[in-house]
Computed example of a mutant assay.
Amino acid sequence: MSTDALRELYAALNRGDIEAVVKDFDPEIVWIEFPDSPGGGIYRGRDVVRAHFAQARSKWAEGSCEPERFVVAGDKIVAFLKIHVRLKSETEWRDGRHAAAYTFRNGKAVEMRIIESEREALDWVNA
């Protein structure tokens, strides 16, 4: 998987195309997203991750999750993301930044973890 494929993944998320989001995920992917927060957790398997994305994306009224830059190190890629979303249940926009750290094997994403700090994300890829 390449940075171009990750750009397409986030474009698919932004347009609500969940099948395109998960198409390059290993069937046994481990998705780690803010485990201690509401809606976060550890999700195992492409079908479970697909359901998580569908549920989370269904709450958006409008918005986007845009990769601003990538750091590539061997079989790892960190995508630094800018989030600008308004949920259906809210009138205010939510803005934030975090990193999505991917590990790949045989061209498929086998793990993704959200990392909140840029320094921690760079340490994760030894950059």
Rank of each mutant, 00 (worst) to 15 (best):
A100K: 02
K23V: 15
F53Y: 10
R7A: 04
R97F: 06
S2E: 11
V22N: 00
E19V: 14
K59C: 11
L9G: 03
A11R: 12
R57G: 00
S37Y: 11
G45K: 00
G45L: 01
G107R: 07
I32V: 15
R113H: 11
Y102C: 01
A5P: 00
Q55E: 12
L87W: 13
A11Q: 09
S89L: 04
V78R: 06
Y43R: 06
A54C: 03
R46E: 04
D36I: 11
D75T: 10
G63R: 13
S2A: 06
W124C: 03
E92F: 15
D36P: 08
L81E: 02
N14P: 04
V21R: 04
R15P: 09
R119G: 08
E33A: 15
E8R: 14
V71K: 08
D4S: 12
W31Q: 04
V125T: 15
E8Q: 14
A79M: 08
T91E: 15
D95R: 10
A51R: 01
E62G: 08
H52N: 03
L87F: 13
Y10P: 02
T103P: 02
R86V: 14
E118N: 07
G41P: 06
M112C: 09
R50Y: 04
F25V: 11
Y43M: 07
A127S: 10
F104W: 07
